[in-house]
Amino acid sequence: MNISKKAILLAGILLTAATGVTGQVRLTREEYIDRYKSIAVAHMERYGIPASITMAQGILESDCGNSWLSVQSNNHFGIKCKRNWTGGKVYYDDDAKGECFRSYPSVEASYHDHAEFLDSQPRYDSLFAYSSSDYKSWARGLKAAGYATAPDYAQRLVRIIEENQLFLLDQPDGERLYASRSGRRITDPEGWFADQSSVDRVATSSSAVDPDNYRVTINAHNGYNVYETNGVHYVMAKEGDTFENIGQKFRLSPRNLRKFNDLKGKTAQPMTGEVIYIERKKKRWDGNAHTHICREGETAYAVGQSYAIRTRSVEKLNRLKPGSVLEKGRQIRIK
């Protein structure tokens, strides 16, 4: 075989190989969604992160799994190394040259780390006060918390979600709803949610409520009176209640309910008559009072539950060690 024929043959082989690789690697948006939506739904049920948000971030950050970073390191969410990262690393030009990004053994590992990253970083705490069906608030919250530098990051996520009807994944039995959409176009997602949901919107109140006299019903849902203090809504646990059944009625995961109430164990359950917050508590008291006078046997947790303030915030404000029992009559700062 002469040189020119060899060159032509080699060029043909290389072109065929390149085309084959491109065909295997390049995913369409629909293929990407079908491949990873089950992971996103599972993480929504465990962490409370909307499946639509997870999918939209994966699509945007990884170009549907086709970007250099996702192909080289399975990093589908653009998460950088940070100081505490001990896993694999890859270097890539982003906001600056040669930035360190996390590298994963699999795409599934990247999805898991994304959920853990949002769940463990304090700057994202406020997002978990939003319902897992409130993708617009999640999108705005991610941008506000600094997840990405693009000024229109929230709008991009919402556009991807609505163009692909990913909000269907946020509903109970979301995968079936998404699979059976049959080309139907939902142009008003919020209206569609309202029509599909039996959950009443919780009423809002403009003023804080005295924690010693806060049993003022502002709404009712599924047999529960809904109360508010410090702008945070809660219910009173009934006999036999669990975080699982309360969560089901308010469309919140048991894990999020425990997190909202500063309970770390997976087995913790409410006691009859106990205050159960159905939103994230605040860091400070919004009312006029600046201090609380302790009762016999009170703890930072008990004070926090009375005022809808996070236990850790009460401890920080008063330089308390976790679990400290407070002396009767002691003044505790609440703002």
Rank of each mutant, 00 (worst) to 15 (best):
M1T: 06
I3K: 12
K5T: 12
K5D: 11
A7H: 08
A11K: 10
G12E: 03
T16L: 14
A18W: 11
G20D: 11
G20N: 11
V21K: 05
R26W: 11
L27V: 08
L27M: 14
R29D: 06
E30R: 09
E30W: 05
Y36E: 06
K37R: 14
K37Q: 12
K37L: 04
I39R: 11
I39L: 10
H43D: 14
I49A: 08
P50T: 05
A51W: 01
S52I: 10
A56L: 03
A56P: 02
I59W: 00
D63G: 15
C64M: 14
N66T: 12
S67Q: 09
V71S: 06
S73C: 07
N75A: 06
F77R: 00
K82S: 13
R83W: 11
N84V: 05
W85Q: 02
G88P: 05
K89A: 06
V90P: 02
D94R: 00
E99R: 07
R102P: 03
E108V: 09
Y111Q: 01
A115H: 04
S120N: 12
Y124S: 08
S126T: 15
S126N: 15
F128K: 03
F128M: 02
S132T: 10
S132V: 08
D134K: 12
Y135F: 15
S137W: 12
W138C: 00
A139V: 03
A139Q: 01
K143E: 15
A145E: 07
G146A: 15
A150N: 15
Y153E: 11
Q155A: 14
R156T: 09
R156G: 07
Q165L: 05
L169G: 01
L169F: 08
D170R: 13
P172T: 07
D173I: 08
D173T: 09
Y178H: 09
Y178V: 09
S180Y: 11
S182G: 05
G183T: 05
G183S: 04
R185N: 13
G191P: 12
A203H: 02
P211K: 01
N213I: 02
R215S: 04
T217E: 08
I218C: 07
N222G: 03
G223A: 03
G223W: 01
Y224N: 04
Y227K: 09
Y227Q: 08
E228T: 09
V232M: 03
M236I: 04
A237I: 00
E239Y: 03
G240W: 03
D241F: 00
D241G: 03
D241H: 00
T242L: 01
T242E: 03
E244A: 06
E244K: 06
N245F: 00
G247L: 02
Q248I: 01
Q248A: 08
F250N: 02
F250H: 02
L252V: 05
L252E: 04
K259I: 01
D262N: 14
K266C: 08
Q269F: 10
T272A: 13
Y277I: 12
I278K: 15
I278M: 14
K281Q: 15
N288R: 13
N288F: 12
A289G: 10
H290Y: 06
R295L: 10
E298C: 06
I309C: 04
T311E: 15
S313L: 07
V314L: 10
V314F: 02
K316Y: 07
K316T: 11
R319G: 09
K321F: 07
P322L: 05
G323M: 00
S324R: 09
L326E: 00
I332S: 10
R333Q: 08
